[in-house]
Amino acid sequence: MENTTKYKTSLVLLLLALVVCFIVNISLGSVTIPFKDTFNAIFGGELTNDSWKYIIWNYRIPKAFTAIFVGSGLALSGLLMQTLFRNPLAGPFVLGISSGASLGAALLIMGTALFSGVFAIGIVNDLSLAIAASIGSFLVLLVVVVVSYRIKDTMALLIIGLMFGSITAAIVSVLSYFTDAEKLQQYIYWSFGSVGNLTWSQLLILLTIIVLGAILSILSIKPLNALLLGENYARSLGINMNMARYKIIIATGLLAGGITAFAGPIAFIGLAVPHLTRQIFNTTDHKVLMPAVLVYGAILMLICDTIAQLPSSANVLPINAITSIVGAPVVIWLLVRKKKMIF
């Protein structure tokens, strides 16, 4: 409580770092655009090449914003889950929400081809994919809420989340056995994750979902802090645990489900960012952690996206591979440094 100014300074520095990462991210890409022109494009100056303006405004800036929303949202949902489930290894995948989204996407891409033959051709586009993934994650969320009402044990919920992952993997492998290579490839590309290809209107939907999730999270700050002691202690402090649990689970579902629907499953951001933030801010207070996690998530995701872009080349690496390459060593480093993972 004496460190408020220190936290504020750190947060301002982080925000500055975010702005730098944002500008670096949009100034790099497959087409080389001079830094001066990037700057002019953002602030309405004159450009030497009109197509550059188009690239920056309709491709690079939406992509950078997607990266920011995806990183912030996933990191926040990871923080919520680690506290709610008292488990340092919890992340958006653990509840099975990402698996639900994957299952929805798999059924749409490969299932339609399998069952309706000719009819399915042309149906699978980005929007229907997002809807299928949302339905998948929403259904899993419903199951989780029902189960959490009947079983108070949060470890049981974690195991149920893992089982959803297994079911998804099993169904995907069965489907892939019967579908043609092209459909399988489409699903695999989706499962690589991507922050590109979002229009401004899709971006607005994503932003709305994340803002809703963030509001619910902010309203849960007090219960989350009490949960650091344990559920019985939280209750003894006057917290309505059922209410708090619903709020946190719905926030998590909105964040993880919405993001997976638009950007595909993206690994490790939700798991690694909360741990990194706790290390650097050296606190467990969610009042401090929440804004910090949002900014850290955004920065890390922008960096991963910048790397995935392979500047000045036409190739794009799957973002999921980059987040894993960056995220997994972070988790290992934390384990080695701290001997055991604590949250």
Binding site: L227, L228, G230, E231, N232, Y233, R278, T283, I342, F343
Partner: peptide
């Protein structure tokens, strides 16, 4: 209350 159950997070100061 002071309970026998362990703290959920021992990372608290």
């Amino acid at each position: 209350v002071v309970l026998t159950e362990p703290l959920a997070s021992k990372n608290l100061t």
